[in-house]
Design a binder for these strands. Structure first.
Lengths: 125, 125
DNA sequence: CCGTATCCCAGCCGATACTG
DNA sequence: CAGTATCGGCTGGGATACGG
């Protein structure tokens, strides 16, 4: 049994890899992390930049990322209130790691699309 | 706008990173890929090793991985039939990349759990 | 041995409307 | 500006049963 499998048995739903993957799997999470790489950004600024995300889902996703210590939330008592989101050091190291995955994806996307077409032709219906 | 965001705009649901992430996000996918690292394995062998997965979900997940060219499916016309699943070269390079993520997760799991506890205490209810 | 067919439910996500 | 409340659709996954 490999470490990965053992980890899953031991931690069950607390397997570290699953924990991280579940966070990254959120439809907009990686995009949000990416958006924060250049520095702190306000809520509606993110909303405008990431086209198609709703207020609810943006708030939800930000909460999850915050709860896992990947981003920070800072409130400025202006009128009206201003809130800034930023990568934590932890979140910053994660985006570095995710970049490797993104590079793999870009490098191999053609191979994946070829495989998909081949599979779909070989399995009609 | 960063490359990642642009990629999302251009490819929409065909963004390479999302494509890969969606595959890895399947609850059992990474565990299956991990199980195949030592060589080809038969269906029920995987099922036994990965405790808790149902036949339906195992079959489903294997199909998705196969469609994306990450694993191969070989049928031996024995009686009863034997089927072997194995990592493709493409799948093998992906698991290498995923290992980096798994290492990050293990290395930082404590920090994540601390963040979660802190968040939950700061946000009761 | 290797699957598919069904039914069911929890959770994600979207749209819309409303508030400090 | 930065959210919450509500409703509703869709899909991933679990349980169970059946077929080649």
């Amino acid at each position: 049994m490999t470490p990965m499998q053992q980890a899953y048995d031991v931690y069950e739903d607390r397997c570290p890899t699953r924990l991280v993957l579940d966070r990254l799997a959120d439809k907009w999470a990686v995009l949000i992390l990416d958006r924060l790489q250049d520095g702190p950004v306000r809520f509606n600024h993110i909303r405008r930049d990431i086209k198609g995300i709703s207020q609810k889902v943006l708030a939800q996703t930000l909460r999850k990322l915050e709860r896992n210590g990947l981003i920070s939330r800072t409130i400025f008592p202006t009128v009206p209130v201003t809130v800034e989101y930023a990568l934590t050091p932890l979140g910053s190291t994660l985006t570095d790691t995710v970049s490797a995955l993104a590079h793999w994806a870009e490098k191999n996307m053609d191979a994946i699309f070829v495989a998909q077409r081949a599979y779909d032709e070989a399995h009609p219906g």
